[in-house]
Design a protein around this nucleic acid. Structure first.
Lengths: 154, 154
DNA sequence: GATTTTCCCATGCTAACCCATGAATTCCCA
DNA sequence: TGGGAATTCATGGGTTAGCATGGGAAAATC
């Protein structure tokens, strides 16, 4: 099970295209073996960055939704926040994706963008914001002592 | 279960490559027989050295993360600090790995580097720092009387 | 018909792959 | 038991293929 690891810098060209880093492409290929690279992009609701979900993961995410009453308020709210601002994108033969304008401006992206691996998903950041986020995450995790649920102390 | 034992010195060449010490290679081979990516490298949280995790161990470490809500703060912080600065590396036919530049500078590595076995994982150090670390660890363990959790009365 | 989008080809560069060498160790057999 | 041969290791370097990126032609949209 190859996951999304590491942080990679790539260039966003005039047409809004970026190469997905090769290691991420490989991880995607092993997940979504059938077709080419298939991703769901959405604005993160915690940070000013783009969240990228492999389509398989995204479907698993939406599965709990199916147990809600289709006409309930809860279903409506969840579905709207999950789907309405999401984009399905597919990589071209060179392994590039085009980022929608709305997401580019949401994340404040310029010429160079940063891909940040988070295991099952990854995020796309403006470089300075990414660096800030990483040190913040380190600090927070350190405060929590890197305790993982079920892994015991230290 | 063969583990990582001992301390070994090897040279870092101009391309950033190092031979993984043969005993460590054997230990890895017995763990990861199928051999995909065999190691995950990370900056240590506690010291200025590189931590090397066999991929199986690393998955075990991160497995509890999968039980967290993907949208929670806790998941975000832990995933970012665990994955975003990690590198998956694979040994070439000669048993060498390439150390990423960021990790080389983080650990302050020069021409010669030290591999330090820690049982289930190992670390990569700048020689002088490694020596200091070892004597410090010896001293601490002596003071604490080598007590291990679950090993009976001190 | 004009503008945007998608597909395809071209290029420089870097990193992975492959082969080579020397030293040190182990193995084997006299 | 000692000496020679054969492995195993660590290390160096050359070549190639993959990767990131740019730009132009076909297709689609308005």
């Amino acid at each position: 099970m190859a996951n999304f690891l590491g942080t990679h810098q790539n260039r966003l060209d005039a047409k809004g295209r970026v190469s997905v880093p090769a290691p991420f492409r490989n991880a995607l290929r092993s997940k979504d073996e059938a077709n080419g690279t298939q991703l769901v992009l959405r604005p993160s609701h915690q940070h000013r960055c783009i969240e990228a979900w492999p389509s398989a993961e995204f479907e698993a995410l939406s599965e709990p939704l199916n147990r809600l009453d289709l006409f309930s308020q809860a279903h409506d709210d969840l579905a709207a926040s999950l789907y309405s601002d999401a984009f399905a994108v597919e990589a071209d033969k060179e392994g590039r994706i085009v980022l929608p304008d709305s997401l580019i401006s949401f994340a404040g992206l310029n010429e160079t963008v940063v891909f940040m691996g988070l295991g099952r998903i990854f995020q796309i950041w403006e470089p300075a914001a990414a660096e800030q986020r990483r040190s913040e995450a380190r600090e927070r995790a350190r405060v929590h002592g890197f305790t993982l649920p079920g892994s015991g102390p230290k």
